[in-house]
Design a binder for these strands. Structure first.
Lengths: 100, 100
DNA sequence: AATGTATATCGACTTTTCCCGATATACCAA
DNA sequence: TTGGTATATCGGGAAAAGTCGATATACATT
């Protein structure tokens, strides 16, 4: 993954916000039936509702974050759940400490 | 400083490169007469030469990095020297650890 | 004062990003 | 199989960023 792409993914208020929400899903989203925040994350619809942008925009934003290894997705039935990608975020931390 | 602006500043290959060069100026730039890397940093012309983009572009890039508190500038005579802004970069590190 | 050098700013053009609505796809339920 | 819900993808118009050459500004030297 190109470093520039990681920073581009983070160069947007809404995407930063989503990542921040996903740090503590239980604080930022209502209970979900049939899915555990820790396990799979939060479904697109919840994130969209909270962000207040269109469905297509949020879907795209989530895939931008995913391509940057900042979140990971799990499909369960008709839902896709997204959660923070711990490893990717730690890698980013290292990039900053070692290269900037 | 807005977090988004920091990440935007980093969303460009050349700007990332510049920051990386400025981490070890003595390794990446030739000796400078009358100015110490540690004290003031590296002058625009050196950075431009190494980056291979136009003077105006590099000048603007440096001011983008400066607005994001990633570098700081010192004017000495007709030269402007730029160096890494340690405090700003540490702050970025903290943002990532605490919010992402 | 006149010229030369280093940097900053401006105006323009091209490419990329933002964000939408419409449509497609995938899955589920009746 | 038909219809309903969740998400992804596509196409596009507006706004922002990338990058340049030309010009302005600031300082130094003669």
């Amino acid at each position: 993954m190109d470093q520039v792409e990681i920073f581009k993914a983070l160069s947007n208020k809404t995407r930063l916000q989503i990542l921040n929400w996903l740090k503590e899903p239980e604080k930022n989203f209502p209970e979900q039936p049939n899915a555990d925040f820790e396990n799979v994350g939060v479904c697109v619809g919840q994130i969209q509702y909270k962000a207040g942008l269109s469905q297509s925009t949020i879907s795209e934003y989530l895939s931008i974050l995913q391509r940057a290894d900042l979140v990971c997705a799990t499909r369960v039935g008709q839902w896709t759940y997204y959660k923070r990608n711990k490893a990717g975020i730690e890698k980013l931390s290292q990039i900053i400490n070692s290269e900037l």
